[in-house]
Structures are given as C-alpha cells and as structure tokens.
Amino acid sequence: MSARAAVAAVALAAAIAFPLVSPNDYFTYVMALAFIYAIAAIGLNLILGYTGQLNLAHAGFMAIGAYALGILTVDYGVPFWLAFLASGLVAALAGLGAGLVSLRLKADYFAIFTLCVGIIIWLGIEKWDSLTHGVVGIIGIPAPAPIGPLRFDTTISKYYLVLVFLVLGLFVMDRIVHSILGRAFVAIRNGEGLAESLGIPLMRTKVTAFVLSTAYAGYAGALYAGFVQFIGPQIASETYAFDMIAFILVGGLGTLSGPVLGAIVLTWATQSLQFLQDYRLLVFGPLLILLVMFLPKGIVGTLRAQQARRAGRRATAARAEAAVAGTADKASAHA
C-alpha cells in the first residue's frame, strides 16, 4: 500500500467516524455542507487548477443544478433520483452552451466573460418568476428518496450520502486527471500554443474540461438542494464562486485533495469566526491576499514541494555516495 493510499484510507476512516464522535447534529450538518461545496470545488479545480482557466460562473452552474432539482421535484413531481440525474445533465448542458461561446476568449477576457455569465444566471433566476419562484426561492424540496432499506431523513444519514458522492467525485476526478485527457488539460494550462503544436485540439479539450466541471457543479447544487431543502437566487451569487476559489487556493491549485482540504479547513475557520458575523468578509478578504502572497501553492502543494525537495536531496546524496564508492573502487583496483 502506497503512502498516498494510506493517507486516503485514514482520511476516509476519519470522515466515516466523524458523525459518531461529533458532539451534536449541527457539526455533522456543517461538515456535510463543507463536503457539498468540496464537490463543487473539485469540479472548479478541473477547469481552474488543471486547465488554467478562471471560471467565475461556477456558483451559477451550481445554482442551475440546484434549481433543476427543486423545480423538477416540487413543481413537476418528478421522483427525486430521476430529477437528481437530470440536474447534473442540465448544468452540463448549460455549461456546454456557455463554454462554446466563452472558451473562444483568452485568459482575462474569459474570466470577465464568465463573471458576466454568472450575473446573467443570477439575475435570470431572480427575474424569471414563473419558472424559479423569483426572490421567494423554492421551499419544501423533498429529502433524497430512500434507496432500498436506506432512508435519508436524518442529518447523519444525509451526511453519509454526501460523503459517498464526495468519494465518488474524487474517484472519478482521479481517473480523469490521470488519463490522457487529463494530461491534455495540464498541457493547455502550461501553454496553449505548445499544447496545440502537440496536436491537442484546443477548443474541444477546453470545452470538455468546462462541461465536466459544470457537471460537478450541477450535482453539487442538486445535493445542496436535497440537503438544505430550500434554495434562493443568492446561491448563484459570485461570492460563492469566490469562496470556492479560496477553497482551492488554500488546499492547493491543481491537486486532487486540495479543494476538499480547503473546503473543510475554511468552513471550520469561518465557523469559528461566526462570532464576527458581518465582519467575516473583513477577515476573509485579507486572508485571500495573504494566501496568494505567502502560500501560493496551498497546503497540499507546499507539502508536495517539500517532499519533492527532500526526495531530490536524497537522490543527490545517493548519487554522491555512489560516485565516492566508484572512485574508491578505482583506487583499490590501481593499488
């Protein structure tokens, strides 16, 4: 068993044990919310960390997923899991449309364009009363329907459901980024011109990354809707997109576990800042700035860089030893 698998196993065991040791349901509730945002952040990391495109509409796509689930279950009486399946697809379809237009733009233009897309989604949800219930939001979304003997009506059971999706999301993302497609994403991040000269179809690959990332957002949104059972237009607000960017930065840009770690650390950090209430952003803004200044690689990235440095030093030392041994051999042969 590799060290990586060991860390993953310990983390999973801790996550499974958490509700059993947590002193009350509220802690479990907050942790499950952190997991839901972690799923969305994993998706955002695919386009931001691996492909290098700053998408500021991610919260908008999460809202599309959440509203798809809410509208289908509450207004049309569609069974929960059918609606759940559809909600991710709806978000991905919206992502396909937005991606086809926006990914023709480079860097800053793309970031600003997606910011506008996010605002359009937000204002659209708020103004399209007949479909989205406008500013009132959607109330009374059903909890996830039971699967066989498993029922999801308590916070703890919902926590485990979210955890299953988080693990599934991480597993799928691991498969994606270690595939040839994942390498194409990283190649684009490292240099679009170079990637194109290697024969990577730029547009198609970027759109694929975008659609996959919005599908993650959509499913995270649907989970959110099923978990909280109430949604309003403000979930599309760009501040949530900024939050997710912060999760990724804290954890480590372009690392698999970074967004999850960041989501958990920051959620609990903001929970402990709860007493500050409205002043929360007063701390949060400067925190973001200090992070990019002093810890630009995030927690996971910094740890990994240290590991690499240590391994490098060990390798140099081994090589030096071998060289010394080699000269000694030669010397003894001469003697």
Partner: peptide, 28 residues
C-alpha cells in the same frame, strides 16, 4: 506591487480579496 512576479491568476484573486475587504469594511 508585491505580486508583480506571480502568475496573473494570483493577482486576480488578490484583487477579489481587496474587493471583499473594502465592501465589508464599508458595511461594518
């Protein structure tokens, strides 16, 4: 000026941080 040599993404995120800070400061 301190982020002049960082990748552009980091400048953008720092700018977002400033935006959140000023807004929160004024609201407070």
């Amino acid at each position: 000026s301190r982020l002049r040599d960082s990748p552009p993404l980091h400048d953008m995120i720092a700018a977002i941080g400033l935006l959140l800070f000023f807004e929160a400061l004024i609201q407070a």
